[in-house]
Nucleic acid binder design. Sequence first.
DNA 1: ATGTGATTTGTACTATCGTACAAAAGATCA
DNA 2: TGATCTTTTGTACGATAGTACAAATCACAT
Lengths: 235, 235
Amino acid sequence: MVRKPTSKETARKPNMREAILAAAEELFATNGFNAVSVRDIAQAAGANPGSVTYHFKTKDGLLLEIYRRHCGPMNLRRSELLAAAKRVRDLQDRLEAVVRAYVAPAFTSGSDLAGGGARFTRLRAVMSAEGNEVARKIIAQTFDDTSHAFIDAIHDSLPHVPRTDIVWRSHFLLGALYYSLVTPDRVSRLSRGEADGSDAASAIEQLVQATVAAFQAPALDQAAPARRRPVVSKT
Amino acid sequence: MVRKPTSKETARKPNMREAILAAAEELFATNGFNAVSVRDIAQAAGANPGSVTYHFKTKDGLLLEIYRRHCGPMNLRRSELLAAAKRVRDLQDRLEAVVRAYVAPAFTSGSDLAGGGARFTRLRAVMSAEGNEVARKIIAQTFDDTSHAFIDAIHDSLPHVPRTDIVWRSHFLLGALYYSLVTPDRVSRLSRGEADGSDAASAIEQLVQATVAAFQAPALDQAAPARRRPVVSKT
DNA sequence: ATGTGATTTGTACTATCGTACAAAAGATCA
DNA sequence: TGATCTTTTGTACGATAGTACAAATCACAT
């Protein structure tokens, strides 16, 4: 009800609304929610502070709209990739495909915006760390279904690992994923320039490889009392 | 130069300063830096807002003092545990010991305060997510040495894995560690109550187990072109 | 051209922020 | 006890926060 594209062209506006959303997304993802003022956002978007109020009513409303904009497409993309991954026959390959289906959309585009996936994922990481109420509500009711679907798919590939362990390890995966987007420069620094933490392709491959191995680790119950067998040959 | 314990007893004050530090630590770690006001901290500590200014001059100064309080002891503890871990002969066991030496102090006490390790680690996670300037400076110059020491130790146990991969995987470890402390309830929720995300012992064991396996994953270079061998038996 | 609804601007209000500072209270020792 | 130093309190100030709202401007169908 906001736009009436009844003109000859359907979309050709400067679209201040979109500019504000993009600016807010970037600023929130970089500095956190409370560190960014509405005036900061307006200035970055080349808009007037009052314009933010007009389009989104409140600052929380702006954050809410950012989530609404991304959650659908990203979950859809993940579902598609997950469905494809589940059709892989080989168990080992299927596990990797499932993990990749979870990881890839978080780094690459998750919506119509170019490269918005990484930015939005970083935003989620920051909001999660800040304990933001608005974000927590949406996350729980939007991503838990997807998370369960992935956990089930992984469990199918690893029937001998208890579901509890799968949950822990998928939690670690998300944490690693978040952190890779939050402080990619740390990877560059610690590797003394040999690795580029900002390179999405590297991050995805490294994360998939490491996580698949983590999921394949022996179950915790049998590992503690019994002596676990070596998982990698020594040469 | 602040205290003069020349009395008969050396320490028996209500010590408002400590109360402020503890309250600030808790509030910052839960809500982020900018979401917490000096007045919030003072109220939680049962102190007067002016008292915070007196002891720490500025809000940044308060954060700085929290870091100063914890960094030393936690790094010391890690160094001790790392030194002990390096003496383990068996390569597999040594790797696990090294990882445990890195993980354990982050969850348990890292200083004189009871359970302060987890709280401080969570604080670091949140500050990292918010891109806090004060925190970033201290972190880089305080923890990078320790991180390098652990990376080297892990590399010694896994000579066939390139150092770059070790860096990535240790980065994932830290991310998983942070996230486990930031949103432990997510583990409880996704496991439908079967696991307790707040249980430090479980978190440590799960994290060590998963991370050791991740470190032991084949190197990325040789994994992509060549067909990797199965790491886990199918039954 | 003109009227109408959507959008943008400018400004103002109230609340709260970090911080400063003087006065009060408490502790310590000759 | 009285002098001196440390700590706590109370209050105030300027800056900035989120938001509201009327006026100005724009887009466009008639």
